[in-house]
Write a protein that binds this DNA or RNA. Structure first.
Length: 235
DNA sequence: GATTGATCATGT
DNA sequence: ACATGATCAATC
């Protein structure tokens, strides 16, 4: 049996939903077999495997571009691991923090806003061994006006901390819906960010108003995704 | 048990 | 180097 290639992009939200229905109930092992992909040797080494499988099966535009997964639909795909009671086990990564741009961007222009406008959540069992995890039934989500107001407040809080040279004080405790946490290869990873006052030039790699900083990411708190999932299951 | 900071794999 | 896909594991 020949391995099927990645599905073509869905032409509508209805088509995306239909494809998701067709894989609901399948395990990671079963879906990997359809694409002739070897299973990761351990869950430690396969952290993104289920998400990649879902992209292949649903027809997300492959690759790692800074675009929505379904470009034509403007939809972002997120697999979300749930416990047996249907509660998220992990926070949800949204997008990298644009350290060099955040001071100039209004919320409506931010990658955070654009990624969250329209999301297709695909639940997956999170407690079984990776190969045995089953995909659930996916559903669409858009933030309400109330949620958007809170997310905008979070965005502006972080922007202000960076603008006032308090980047070092940003940690995972801040933000009501969205938090900022490290998102790098390891703790020594660095990207070019805004120059912090008082930093030793040269020693920190200062370069035309930029300095090296830890790469950071926006994540959705489980308290929020829990509410989203609960709402979707209740419908 | 929930949370925060650290980490793994892959593609361009 | 940096984006994508996230989960692991030490600590609170």
């Amino acid at each position: 049996m020949k391995a099927p290639r990645a599905a073509s992009p869905p032409q509508s939200e209805a088509e995306l939903e239909e494809r998701a229905r067709s894989i609901a109930g399948l395990t990671v092992r079963e879906l990997a077999a359809r694409f002739d992909l070897p299973l990761p040797e351990s869950s430690t080494r396969g952290k993104g495997f289920a998400g990649t499988l879902a992209e292949l099966a649903l027809g997300a535009s492959a690759g790692n571009r800074s675009e929505p997964d379904f470009v034509e639909l403007g939809v972002e795909l997120k697999t979300i691991p749930l416990d047996q009671r249907g509660r998220p086990l992990e926070t949800t990564f949204v997008t990298t923090v644009p350290l060099h741009q955040i001071l100039e961007l209004e919320f409506e222009q931010s990658p955070l806003y654009h990624k969250l406008r329209r999301v297709f959540f695909l639940p997956i069992e999170g407690e079984a061994p990776l190969p045995e995890r089953r995909f659930g039934l996916g559903f669409f989500y858009s933030p309400s006006e109330e949620e958007l107001a809170i997310i905008r407040r979070d965005w502006e809080l972080f922007g202000e901390l960076i603008a006032t040279q308090e980047m070092e004080s940003i940690d995972g405790t801040l933000g009501e819906i969205v938090q900022i946490r490290p998102k790098g290869r390891d703790a020594s990873d660095r990207v070019l960010g805004p120059l912090q006052e008082g930093s030793a030039e040269g020693a920190r790699g200062e370069e035309g108003g930029l300095a090296y900083a830890r790469p950071l990411g926006f994540y959705l708190r489980t308290s929020h995704t829990r509410a989203i999932v609960a709402r979707a299951l209740a419908l």
